[in-house]
Nucleic acid binder design. Structure first.
Lengths: 114, 114
DNA sequence: GGTTCAATTCAACGTTTCATGAGTAGTTGA
DNA sequence: TCAACTACTCATGAAACGTTGAATTGAACC
């Protein structure tokens, strides 16, 4: 994944509502979810929802598909994975401690400090 | 790592100059780097540098230490790891494809498309 | 004490982002 | 075609962000 796209993804994820959106949609998997259902689930107004969905889709984190009246949204799990891969490999140069914290739970420095 | 802190980290990283800062400092490791040297390396003015360093430090991604006239900055690798861990585990519910893309290189959807 | 270097803080400005509500476009079924 | 429904777009104002240059603080050296 290119640098500019990673920045777009980070920017898109750096918002409470959009992190909730991704969290919800990841759990729905490939099947995805209709925009209206998402709005009801998360308590977002139609325009706010549309705004945030568009931001995530433009960043490449979501895909949408019209099905009759509804528009079904689903996460692009590969895009999320690639973004994280960029952070780990390119940005952090596969730093072992970053990997450890990422794979494990807390990280070495948290363990060494009481 | 808490949700609000993850949002702060994402927000801090979603900027070109700050991603460069982290990339540079990760490669310096524990030793870190003086603010002036960072500015020369990345071609940032003093106030811009200071602004971005403060943003990263406030998000908990950097630590600073005054040494004589200089202020030495170093990344908190555990914090980066924990942020990524949150994205993988909490936000993406340890989705296998996200993990695969993150550990591997490209991800399944990129492989299936030519 | 005074000077110099390093780094931060501050105010100002323009830009971008966000939330809201109203209005618009596309789809369905009678 | 019409009404009902779903989802999107637009205009507005408020808030946050990013850049700049000047002023300030802190430490070291004469």
């Amino acid at each position: 994944m290119e640098r500019s796209k990673v920045l777009a993804c980070l920017s898109a994820l750096a918002h409470e509502a959009r992190l909730d959106l991704v969290r919800l949609l990841v759990r729905r998997g490939e099947a995805g979810m209709a925009a209206g259902d998402i709005g009801r689930e998360l308590g977002l107004t139609a325009s706010r929802l549309s705004f945030h969905l568009a931001a995530l889709e433009q960043a490449g984190l979501l895909r949408s598909q019209r099905v009759s009246r509804n528009v079904i949204y689903a996460v692009d799990t590969a895009a999320i994975g690639q973004m994280i891969h960029y952070l780990l490999a390119d940005c952090c140069a596969d730093h072992p401690e970053v990997r450890a914290c990422c794979d494990g739970a807390r990280g070495l420095s948290s363990l060494s400090a009481p």
